[in-house]
Design a protein around this nucleic acid. Structure first.
Lengths: 191, 191
DNA sequence: AAAGTAATTTGATGTAGATCAAAAATGGTT
DNA sequence: AACCATTTTTGATCTACATCAAATTACTTT
């Protein structure tokens, strides 16, 4: 059951046919292989990506060169480096595919143009931010502040029950902000 | 140097005079005493508050009845329970004044009306979210994931150098996600 | 299938910060 | 000033999770 780009857009907020057509034209359909980088640090994030299937991680690389995952997206998700995208500043993080993935990309400049041109599109964009961005980040923030390692792991499993079939435990432990050793012990019921 | 409501609004994105007037009329000027609750859990957050001076905390109350601070706002800040406000769901957290404070409040319904009515106002609202909400939350999230207790404290001091004159160390430690004992030791240079 | 590399697990030990208990400092009230 | 409540500090101990090292398992590539 593959979703079309039109479906994704209309599900956020239905647009009139003429605007929808114009919006769709601004998207580029892309397929990239596993390990491909959508964004590298230092570059300004110019895109918003709508993934239809695949898997992606966002990560920082710290001073010691260690990669620390900040986010996963599996299948139907919206992807960007929010801070770099909205402030048009160099990104601090990388975005990398963890599976061969299929995406639709729209540029920041196209969004800005559409926002200027169509009142209804600004309402669509507000809905996108309010529904697809804000609750997720608030939730992640609360998890990091209030939950211990085991609770964070269980919550991730609730969200993506099959994530361990698709994402390595090393990547998962990094996102959970624990070591691979600790995740292994949690999974073995030793913690 | 007190800022007027007009200044605050125009600083986000300048609006034409007629729209500005209409927007200003939707705000209510409020003064509340220290300890007053702007929001309690279970209530739907109907307001966006623009504080001109004062101090506020947001906090969760956990199952054991312990209050865990999630945010501070001092002086010129925009305040709301974002998730409750955008999803119009019952709030999980409380918002409470920590000083006598002066605020301007606008209701969700007024925002929704203005968004429907004025294209320029939607652009103003997007700017508000993109500049005043997104970078802050992304930053807080990174702090919680990557910094240790001492680094989090020093970063808070960078942001609000005089915060310890206005907010109790108990509240600060809660926001930093550490105990008052640990904060005391950090400040004494013992950690 | 064998070989080599990377991912995961297991065990031993270390540490940042929590918890518990009590003392000291601070602040508001009469 | 004296009193009470609250906040902050200090010290002793405990714990969740990190770190380090080695063994095991799984995954590629020939």
């Amino acid at each position: 059951m593959k979703v079309s780009l039109e479906n994704i857009i209309q599900q956020i907020l239905p647009l009139p046919q003429d605007v929808l057509k114009e919006v769709v034209l601004e998207f580029q359909h892309l397929e990239y292989p596993k390990n491909y980088f959508l964004l590298k640090p230092g570059k300004i994030c110019q895109h918003l990506w709508f993934m239809t299937n695949g898997a992606v991680r966002s990560f920082y690389t710290n001073e010691q060169g260690k990669e620390l995952n900040t986010w996963f997206s599996l299948d139907a998700q919206i992807i960007t480096d929010t801070t770099s995208f909205v402030k048009q500043e160099p990104a601090l993080e990388s975005i990398q595919l963890l599976e061969d993935s299929e995406l639709y990309a729209i540029e920041r400049s196209s969004i800005v143009n559409l926002l200027q041109k169509h009142h209804i599109f600004t309402l669509w964009y507000i809905k996108l931010v309010e529904v697809h961005y804000i609750p997720q980040t608030e939730d992640r923030m609360a998890d990091l502040q209030f939950l211990d390692a085991k609770q964070r792991y269980n919550k991730l499993l609730d969200l993506y029950p099959c994530i361990t079939n698709r994402i390595s435990l090393g990547h998962i432990s990094s996102y959970l902000n624990i070591t691979p050793e600790t995740l292994s012990r949690i999974r073995a019921g030793k913690l």
